[in-house]
Design a protein around this nucleic acid. Structure first.
Lengths: 162, 162
DNA sequence: GAATGTTTTGCAATACTATAACATTCCGCA
DNA sequence: TGCGGAATGTTATAGTATTGCAAAACATTC
C-alpha cells in the first residue's frame, strides 16, 4: 500500500490515518506481532499528522490518557513499531514519523520541509540503486540506510517566494 | 584534497591525520576563521582514527589536558569545525568524524562499518544527482542531505565469513 | 481451568546528548 | 591604550534514551 503523495497534496487526512492503522493491524496479524492498545495508540498519535513527533511529545499525550506512562512505555512501543516497519525514526530530528510504505521492502528517503515540517517518504529505485552501487564499488556491504533531506516543500516555496 | 580511500586501505595514519590538520589550517587561514588551540586540539582528537567519537568522548580527553573543559567547550569547537566543513556530525550515531573532503563542495555519503566502526566518506556524483532529481520530481527543493549507510566494510566481511 | 513459560507493562533510577544564559578573558584594530 | 567583537569559563538545565528488576497479562499445554 502506498499512500498517495501526501502530505503536499491536499487529502482527507482522517482517511489517510485510518488506512494506515488498518494496514498496520493487517500487517501485525500476518506477522503474528501483537499490536497492543499502547502500541496502537502510539501509532495513532504518530499518524495524527505528517509531521514528526518526538518521543516525549508522544509521552505527554499518552500520559494525559493513562496513569502509568513513562519513557520506557513510549520507547518500547516505538521499538516495536520500528521493528515491524510501521514507523521511521528520523535521526536528524530525534523524532518519529509513520511509514507510508509499511509492508513493502524499501528504505525510505525522507523529504523534510524545514518550514512546515511535513515529511514525505519516497522510495526511489534510482536512488536505492545508485547508493548500493556506490557502496559496493568500495567493497562495502550495506545493511541500513539513513537518507534524510531537509529543504522546502512545494507549498512553502511559493509562500516564501515574493 | 581527497585523502585516499582510507580507512579500509592500510595507510600511515599519522601522515593521514597530519595532512588533515595541515589542510584545516590552510582552509581556516583562507577563510579568516580562527583555528584556536581548543578547536585545533578537538580536530586532532577526532583525527586520531577513522572511527567516530562522541562529544563526551572528546570532552573526557580534553578535560584530562586542561582544567576548564565543559560540555560547551567541546560543542562550540565542534560547531566551528562543522561550519567550516572540517568535521561531519553523524546523526544516526550522535558522533563526529573528520571530513575527508574539506574545502570541496560536497555532501558526504558515510559508509559506517557496524563491526569495526570505521567510517569512509564518499562523494558520488551519481548518488548526489539521483537524490536531487528524485526530490525535485516531487517539487521539493533540497537544502541539507543526511546520508549514512551502516554495513560491513571489506575487511570485516572476510572476517565474519567462515 | 490450573500450571507454566513468554511477552508485555509498571516503575524508579540513571545515562547520555546538547543548549541556555551570563560573566570573563582574549585579540585585532583604531 | 582603549574599544568592540570573538572566544572561553562557569553553572545550570533541557532534552533524549536506556537499564534493571518487579508485576501483570497472555498463550499454550496439560
Amino acid at each position: 500500500m502506498v499512500v498517495s503523495a501526501a502530505p503536499y497534496h491536499p487529502h482527507n487526512h482522517d482517511v489517510c490515518a485510518r488506512e494506515a492503522l488498518d494496514n498496520a493491524r493487517s500487517i501485525c496479524k500476518t506477522r503474528q506481532a501483537r499490536l497492543t492498545p499502547i502500541r496502537e495508540r502510539v501509532l495513532e498519535l504518530i499518524w495524527q499528522s505528517h509531521k514528526p513527533l518526538g518521543a516525549y511529545d508522544l509521552l505527554a499525550e499518552l500520559a494525559s490518557e493513562r496513569q502509568n506512562a513513562a519513557p520506557p512505555t513510549v520507547y518500547r512501543a516505538l521499538d516495536f513499531l520500528q521493528q515491524n516497519g510501521l514507523v521511521h525514526r528520523i535521526a536528524s530530528l530525534n523524532a518519529f514519523i509513520g511509514c507510508t510504505h509499511a509492508g513493502e521492502s524499501h528504505h525510505g528517503m525522507l523529504l523534510i520541509c524545514s518550514q512546515c515540517r511535513n515529511v514525505l517518504e519516497l522510495a526511489s529505485g534510482d536512488v536505492t540503486h545508485s547508493i548500493r552501487s556506490a557502496a559496493r564499488e568500495q567493497g562495502f556491504e550495506p545493511q541500513e540506510t539513513t537518507l534524510e533531506i531537509t529543504g522546502l516543500c512545494p507549498a512553502c516555496q511559493t509562500k516564501t517566494d515574493p
